[in-house]
Design a protein around this nucleic acid. Sequence first.
DNA 1: TTTACTGTTAGGAC
DNA 2: TGTCCTAACAGTAA
Length: 261
Amino acid sequence: MPELPEAEAARARLESGALHRTIAGFALGEVTHMDLPDEASRERLMGTQFTRTRRHGKYIFIGSVDGPWLHIHLGMSGSLRVMDAGDELPDYIRLTVEFEGDRRLHFRDPRKFGRIEVIDDVDDFIAAKGLGPDALEIGDNAFADAIGRTRGAVKSALLSQKKLAGIGNLWSDEALYRTGIDPDARGSDLTQERIGTLHRATREILQSVVDTGATYSKLPDDWLIHRRDDGAACTRCDGTITKKKVGGRTSYHCPDHQTGT
DNA sequence: TTTACTGTTAGGAC
DNA sequence: TGTCCTAACAGTAA
């Protein structure tokens, strides 16, 4: 379920379980239609150790000061598992990094929308992708520009990784729900005050989810995440949660307290 | 059996 | 030129 908080949880898992161990091999699962490192890329990593991790938006990186990096994107259904040899393997493991000793790093991805590749420089990669600032780091002015200068739907702007990186369908809905903004509202129609409120809500929501390790059941009961159902009761007014498409994405909102301007 | 889905991106419309 | 929108990707689950 990967947006920024899930990527951050995965990064933390790498940080605690996959550093300072010599890479001894790789095992490939069923890999048709997937972007995974080819033989030559895997060969570059053999015998090296990862010593640090990074994350930018939904993009995860693990590498070292001067060596190549592994870039991991979880796609729609990817996850990382740090396990030991002999542990019972879940289904849909697409790539395993085998460290000396028993430690194993597994990339699981049923739907195969994720990707892993070997890259030389993280900052170059981020620039080449055209990613905006990380959603937890972006400053007030940059956020106001990213949202307030778009003619399209505010939700689409939140979702644009080029404007700011890390927000996906679930947490964009959550932030708009909390701030009472209709996902279809034009970004350029919002007052500066509302955009400021949206920025704070976005940051607080993402940070809260990060703090739970992206465990949804630990999030407060009144969050939209627990009632993404057409017809559910709104927790902020007497309204009813309603489903609609915004920018091609399924969106849940309360038409009573979420307004256009 | 049909429909929808938490992300990205190419291609086309405006 | 830029911005925005849609469809497609693959597999599973409801």
